[in-house]
Simulated scan of single mutants.
Amino acid sequence: MLHLRLLKAIVERKNRLRRGGDEGQTVFEYLGIIVIISLIIAAIIASGLAGNISGAITAVLKKITG
């Protein structure tokens, strides 16, 4: 019984160590997504499409609510 608990503890520790190596990668993946979304938003604002999109959303909301 003691051997099984010891084996379980060793396996759990190894699994935690394996998963720990991926955490930094995940942070950089999220950072990359945030950067891409920010660039898309900046491009929309710079191109002047922001006003058109805002107007379209406002028109749709007026149709829904009134």
Rank of each mutant, 00 (worst) to 15 (best):
residue 1 M to S: 04
residue 2 L to A: 11
residue 3 H to Q: 15
residue 3 H to S: 05
residue 3 H to L: 12
residue 4 L to P: 00
residue 4 L to S: 06
residue 5 R to P: 04
residue 6 L to A: 12
residue 6 L to S: 13
residue 7 L to F: 07
residue 7 L to S: 02
residue 8 K to H: 13
residue 8 K to G: 06
residue 9 A to N: 02
residue 10 I to Y: 06
residue 10 I to N: 07
residue 12 E to C: 13
residue 12 E to W: 04
residue 12 E to G: 03
residue 13 R to L: 02
residue 15 N to F: 09
residue 16 R to Q: 06
residue 17 L to A: 04
residue 17 L to H: 07
residue 17 L to E: 14
residue 18 R to N: 13
residue 18 R to E: 11
residue 18 R to H: 15
residue 20 G to N: 10
residue 21 G to Y: 12
residue 22 D to M: 05
residue 22 D to C: 14
residue 23 E to Q: 13
residue 24 G to E: 03
residue 24 G to L: 09
residue 26 T to E: 12
residue 26 T to N: 11
residue 26 T to R: 11
residue 27 V to L: 14
residue 28 F to L: 10
residue 28 F to Q: 01
residue 28 F to G: 00
residue 29 E to I: 10
residue 29 E to T: 07
residue 29 E to P: 00
residue 30 Y to F: 13
residue 31 L to F: 00
residue 31 L to T: 03
residue 32 G to L: 08
residue 33 I to M: 11
residue 34 I to G: 00
residue 34 I to Q: 13
residue 35 V to E: 12
residue 36 I to H: 03
residue 38 S to R: 15
residue 39 L to G: 14
residue 40 I to H: 06
residue 40 I to Q: 12
residue 40 I to S: 01
residue 42 A to P: 08
residue 44 I to S: 10
residue 44 I to K: 03
residue 45 I to Q: 12
residue 46 A to Y: 04
residue 46 A to V: 10
residue 47 S to A: 10
residue 47 S to W: 10
residue 48 G to V: 04
residue 49 L to V: 05
residue 49 L to W: 08
residue 49 L to P: 02
residue 51 G to K: 07
residue 52 N to R: 15
residue 52 N to V: 09
residue 54 S to G: 15
residue 56 A to L: 13
residue 56 A to I: 03
residue 56 A to E: 05
residue 57 I to K: 05
residue 58 T to N: 04
residue 58 T to K: 10
residue 59 A to N: 08
residue 59 A to E: 02
residue 60 V to W: 11
residue 60 V to E: 14
residue 60 V to G: 11
residue 61 L to K: 09
residue 61 L to H: 12
residue 62 K to N: 02
residue 62 K to Y: 02
residue 62 K to D: 13
residue 62 K to A: 14
residue 63 K to P: 00
residue 64 I to V: 05
residue 64 I to N: 00
residue 64 I to A: 06
residue 64 I to G: 11
residue 64 I to S: 04
residue 65 T to K: 11
residue 65 T to V: 14
